[in-house]
């Protein structure tokens, strides 16, 4: 569980996040949705401590991230996996070495144990052995995302963050990635936070949804409730795509 309370963040006087409070639950996919530029990435980076917040509290279960020491933060980071928008795989390392990197850095596993763990993670995201030696520049966008997910779960994290995990992917691959993240979340009982502006994802895996606009929370609920809402701002966002308007009428 991750809980944020009254979080504020601004850049040089320009407020980007305003009084955000939310509880992200364990074992389900928590979505942060909103238009481009609404502050999703800033919110996630603030929760992760990549950006210093102005005010507020961030709780990782019983640990208050804002208050704990630098050393404790580092320790906590070992329990966090992150999938970046573009994958952010290390260009100079092969697929296998990318997944092995956190193991190399933070564990004392033997070569064999490492190999087993890499196999386990890559197998979970359906990457075949033939791709192990390839470099990030040699694989497709969908594969990059899958390898990035494998790397993110390498250390068996309690918390998983995904920034627009299916941006730049075709709809079919995007759905596969969404489901994959959801399955992993259930299997490993992680607290998963996903940033997205993709309505398909919202309907597919939006077990808990938080809608932000201009840095403020405007609505929260589930994908079951989202099509029935009267929230005007949210409707503007959802029904920008006519298909969903039709779906609403059909309901």
């Amino acid at each position: 569980m991750i809980e944020i309370k009254n979080l504020y963040k601004s850049f040089e006087g320009q407020t980007v996040l305003k009084d955000i409070s939310f509880r992200f639950q364990q074992g389900i996919t928590n979505l942060i949705i909103g238009r481009s530029g609404s502050g999703k990435t800033v919110l996630v980076k603030s929760i992760l401590g990549l950006l210093e917040i102005d005010e507020g509290e961030i709780w990782y279960d019983e640990k208050n991230f804002v208050k704990i020491s630098q050393k404790e933060r580092k320790a906590l980071r070992r329990e966090i996996g992150m999938v970046f928008q573009g994958g952010a795989l290390f260009d100079s390392l092969s697929v296998e070495a990318n997944v092995g990197f956190p193991l190399e850095m933070f564990t004392n596993l033997t070569a064999r144990e490492k190999e087993k763990r890499i196999d386990f993670c890559l197998d979970h995201v359906n990457i075949e052995k033939t791709a192990y030696k390839l470099f990030p520049s040699e694989i497709s966008g969908g594969m990059k995302k899958r390898v990035a997910i494998a790397r993110a779960i390498a250390l068996n994290p309690k918390y998983l963050f995904c920034d627009e995990p299916n941006s730049g992917l075709d709809p079919e691959t995007a759905t596969i990635i969404d489901r994959l993240i959801q399955d992993l979340t259930k299997e490993f009982q992680m607290t998963t936070i996903i940033n997205t502006h993709d309505m398909n994802s919202v309907l597919e895996i939006g077990e808990s949804v938080m809608f932000i606009s201009k840095g403020e929370v405007w609505w929260e609920g589930t994908n079951k409730e989202i099509l029935k809402t009267n929230n005007e701002k949210l409707n503007d966002f959802i029904f920008a795509n006519k298909i969903y308007d039709q779906m609403r009428k059909d309901l």
Binding site: L50, R77, M82, A88
Partner: peptide, 9 residues
């Protein structure tokens, strides 16, 4: 990729 390193601690 740098953020990625930072996240890992």
């Amino acid at each position: 990729q740098i953020d990625s390193l930072e996240i890992m601690g």
